[in-house]
Amino acid sequence: MTELTDRYLFAATRSLPAAQREELSRDLAERIADTIEARVESGASTPETAERDALVELGHPAALAATYSDRPLVLIGPRYYLTWKRLLVFLESFVPATVAAVSALGLVISGGGWEVIGSAIGIGISVAVQLAFWLTLVFAFIERYDPGKGSATEAADTLGWTPEQLPQLPELRRPHRRSDLVAGLVWLAIAAAFLVWQQFGIVWIGGERSSVPLLDPDLWSFWLPYLLVLIALEAAFAVWIYRADWNWANAIVNVVLNAAFAIPVVWLFIEGRLLSPEFVALVEPHLDADAEWVLSVLFVAGIVGVCAWDAIDGIIKAARGGGRGTLSFPGNRSPQRAAR
């Protein structure tokens, strides 16, 4: 098998349970080999193009996998199911959360109290349901009145699928793409720069930036340097993960780093020592007690939620034996896997 066939097998089997993955991969590999041989013998393809032509003939790997695994794509209809699913997942990934966040901000500004949280969650759920309903209705209408009917494998034509769109094989030695590492380091650099920049004033009064700092200047005696050191450790840890992958030791280190950030920040905030007195004095006249309580809950929940999510994500990757690159599938011929 070549890399192109391996990529096709990976795309077709990655969403299946492990028990089905090996059998389907083996069957597909045999079918691809037979198709290549048949095309070459019949003269339909040259030996150089037979593999790509065979994959085009087989069609979209997700649609083909559905026919093998008794998971017919029938919610909308085989012709448009993949297009509907891809668009639905894309829209649901950010539209409800964005609408809920904007609604919560508007309710807080208008003087809303603790009930803002429940209202925002309700709005987000409502938007998600409405979005799914109307998108499905549109595709059902298209499916009903479109004269061209097709099978699941013909959905590739609807998606404009080609073998060049196949996902790259996961790399066991480099489970995280370099772009992810760079993005993480950039965000850490921005966080460090913000800690320094905010000290020179982050409040705008009358259209001009004031010298009022956001964080209490007294924190420079220990806690702000502590956070800068912690950011440096996070950067070093990100590089280490890029090079070494996830394991239980690294997952524990990740939990410790997240706790080392979340616990002091939340404690300082609850004790009233995180924000500068000047900043609090400027903001308090514009907020009532309920608004202050809501913003405080959102801040604490945000810090705890982000850190907990990152810690749990590391634990899950360690439990799976590593990051994205440790996915086990037939056809993965990386050097590390072959050495096992």
Rank of each mutant, 00 (worst) to 15 (best):
E115K: 13
Y145L: 15
Q198A: 14
P147R: 15
N250F: 01
Q165R: 12
I303L: 08
A66Q: 01
L169F: 08
R26V: 10
L55Y: 06
S110P: 08
P285H: 13
D34A: 07
E154D: 13
P17C: 12
C307F: 02
G314W: 00
A33K: 03
R86Q: 14
W223C: 05
Q199E: 12
R320L: 02
P47A: 11
Q20D: 12
P96V: 07
E171K: 06
A132M: 11
A311M: 08
G150M: 09
I205C: 12
L159M: 09
A318Q: 04
V40H: 03
V304D: 00
L214P: 02
P47T: 13
Q20K: 14
A50R: 04
N332A: 01
P96R: 05
G59D: 03
A260W: 01
F133S: 14
A281T: 10
L230R: 02
A97L: 14
A183T: 14
W197Y: 11
V203A: 14
R14H: 09
G184K: 09
E234H: 08
T13P: 00
A155M: 01
L287G: 11
I315E: 01
L230A: 09
G206A: 09
A100C: 13
R177V: 10
L88Q: 02
F222W: 15
A11H: 08
L16F: 10
P175G: 00
S334H: 04
R79K: 13
P72E: 00
P147E: 07
A54C: 07
W246S: 00
T98Q: 08
P47S: 12
V203D: 07
V89M: 12
E23Q: 14
M1I: 12
A140Q: 10
I252V: 13
V212W: 02
I142R: 12
D34N: 15
G323C: 05
F10D: 05
A100F: 06
G112E: 04
L9H: 02
S210G: 14
L28S: 05
V186H: 13
P72L: 08
F237E: 03
G321S: 05
R273P: 04
F10R: 00
S210D: 11
A65Y: 03
P213W: 02
E292D: 12
L91D: 10
H60I: 07
L298E: 06
G148P: 11
A18M: 02
A63S: 00
T13G: 07
V212T: 09
V255S: 03
E278D: 12
E292L: 14
W161N: 08
T35Q: 15
V99C: 04
V56W: 03
L137W: 13
G112A: 10
I303D: 00
P217V: 05
S296F: 10
L55G: 05
I123C: 04
V300P: 00
F133Q: 11
L166D: 00
Y8M: 05
E292Y: 07
S151Q: 05
V266D: 07
T98M: 14
G321W: 01
G272T: 02
R177M: 11
D218L: 15
D27L: 15
I270K: 06
D157M: 15
G112I: 04
S45G: 05
R243A: 03
A100I: 08
T136Y: 08
V300D: 10
T98P: 07
